[in-house]
Amino acid sequence: MLETLPITKEEICKPENLVYSRTHLMTDAALSYCPGCGHGTIHRMIMEVIDEMNLQADTIGVAPVGCSVLAYEFLNIDMQQAAHGRAPAVATGIKRLMPNKFVFTYQGDGDLAAIGTAETIHACNRGENITIFYVNNGIYGMTGGQMAPTTLPQMKTATSPFGRNVETMGYPLKITELIAMLPGTYFVTRQSVHTAANVRKTKKAIQKAIEYQKLNKGLSFVEIVSNCNSGWKMTPVEANKWMEENMFPFYPLGDIKVPK
């Protein structure tokens, strides 16, 4: 016998039953990202943590050049937009002069691991009390899918149309492992947001990074391996599967450096 439901949709969707909605620290602006792109989820997780830790009035974010160049349109916090690769220097300037604020950069792999390598390494090595959120999708998304410092061997991009030949184009850069070796970094981790379980782990990592910034012990670095379905030329669901099969073996998820 088919039981009739004891409760209607209207009765469920009451304010007291609300268990999840987009945080008000995300603006109402429609995200400019492609369908299925991880940026939106990562933005939201950072904003959820800032909201839950009641840090809106104490946060200054730095947006990079790349797909997330317009992050300040979506995040309801004070932000500065940096030149390509220079976000860690901009954040250094902010944090040194506003040491009681929570300061973070949000950077892609081209921004952080190619043009901004010097700024990244030295901010990490100085142990700046900032947090870097590093979104690695192995490609230059905004400019149309060119080869990035993180592009996997044999991976096809607009500027490696026959696959990345490491003999002529160099090797993908595991900058996160490199950064973990520096004494100035306090917490270094690599996460993803392609499944609900991974989103939860990423959020925990963000929470830790923010808490550690308050301790003034050095730089916290959260890499999020993410998809670029447009650049990879796949559907979002296929891209997530491809990421599991190809990106994660080379960029394994998990903590790389944790406080002793």
Binding site: I60, V90, L97, E119
Partner: peptide, 12 residues
Amino acid sequence: ASIHMVYGGAGC
């Protein structure tokens, strides 16, 4: 890096 640190501070 110097000039972009200036940018960050100036923005505050």
